[in-house]
């Protein structure tokens, strides 16, 4: 893995107005992202994990430029072709039911440049073969395919624009386990063959563990922990990461093992908590947690790029080892 950043997010914040008073001024704001700093490195698979409301989907929308950051910036390094594509979660609704598959696959191409139909069909056929579909199938419509095949179509579509980065937004969570394995293998093959960079957004820790080089754990619109996948998963430094990992069901492990919290309700993201965002739910809360925390390296880390947004990170890592 090279260590050259391809895409740098610097202090990205996004807030949406909610409700209007009679003058049309917003009454409150939803703070979806609160200062996300991350450099996506060329050729890596970056996993973004977190639960609903953590800002994963807003992050995807910022990356794909559907949403403009309210503050902060998103910058591509010079020379990058600045092409980013996306594969969505639900292969049912992410493909237009009334377009033939060759149209769907080549959509990123024909929207931007004029190409003949024969040309588009040839391109679609090539891509279909690369994702494990048959060339003859490109004249069919999405409903004639299974969920796994539809996700292959979505991957072919992302490839057609020759992107550098593909955002994978929960790409296998609507699929059966056996199909999930096929799709993850395909994505790994494509990455190797094309030198792609992936940003995998997922709530499925086993998928992230298997597939990612680096992991960013998000909570309430912030990255609370960032580091090499093996380090973050084996030696979580942030209490939230620990809680999350302990909640992941595992075959053969008791439902009662590990940390659990009584209060599973997220704090409102309309009025952000002061200090550490996780303070109210954290089992390790002490003095000092009322101050805002920064994402920083900590004593006792095993990888120099392992960061946590917790002033007790060093103690907590110790505690596990």
């Amino acid at each position: 893995m090279t260590h050259s950043p391809l895409l740098v997010l610097d202090g990205v914040s996004v807030r949406f107005p909610v409700g209007m008073d009679w003058l049309g001024r917003p009454i409150a704001h939803v703070h979806a992202l609160n200062g996300v700093d991350i450099a996506v490195e060329a050729g890596e698979v970056l996993g973004v994990v977190g639960e609903s409301g953590c800002g994963k989907s807003t992050l995807a929308n910022v990356l794909t430029r559907l949403v403009k950051p309210t503050a902060g910036s998103l910058a591509w390094t010079v020379g990058a072709r600045q092409r980013l594509q996306i594969v969505f979660q639900d292969p049912q609704s992410s493909l237009d039911p009334r377009l033939p598959v060759w149209r769907i696959i080549t959509e990123p191409v024909f929207l931007r440049e004029h190409r003949t139909v024969a040309d588009l069909k040839r391109l679609a056929g090539d891509l279909a073969e690369q994702v494990g579909l048959r060339r003859e199938q490109i004249g069919r419509y999405p409903h004639e395919f299974s969920g796994g095949q539809r996700q292959r179509i979505a991957i072919a579509r992302a490839l057609s624009a020759q992107p550098d980065v593909i955002v994978l937004d929960e790409p296998t969570s609507a699929l059966d386990v056996s199909v999930q394995a096929q799709i993850l293998n395909l994505l790994a093959d494509l990455r190797r063959a094309r030198g792609l960079t992936y940003i995998l957004i997922s709530h499925n820790i086993s998928v992230v563990r298997h597939f990612c080089d680096r992991i960013a754990v998000m909570y309430l619109g912030q990255i609370v922990e960032l580091g090499p996948a093996a380090d973050v998963l084996a030696r979580p430094a942030h209490p939230y990461t620990r809680l999350l990992l302990d909640a992941v069901p595992e075959i053969g492990r008791s439902l009662d093992a590990g940390l659990a919290i009584a209060d599973t309700e997220l704090p409102s993201n309309r009025r952000l908590p002061a200090g550490c965002f996780f303070r109210d739910r954290c089992p390790f809360v002490v003095d000092g947690c009322e101050r805002p925390q920064s994402l920083a390296p900590f004593a006792g880390l095993t990888a120099d790029n392992h960061l946590a947004r917790c002033h007790r990170a060093a103690d907590l890592v110790e505690d596990i080892v």
Partner: peptide, 11 residues
């Protein structure tokens, strides 16, 4: 299952 394979290994 992804957890049955080593990271990066084929599933």
């Amino acid at each position: 299952l992804p957890e049955r394979a080593a990271p990066g290994e084929r599933l």
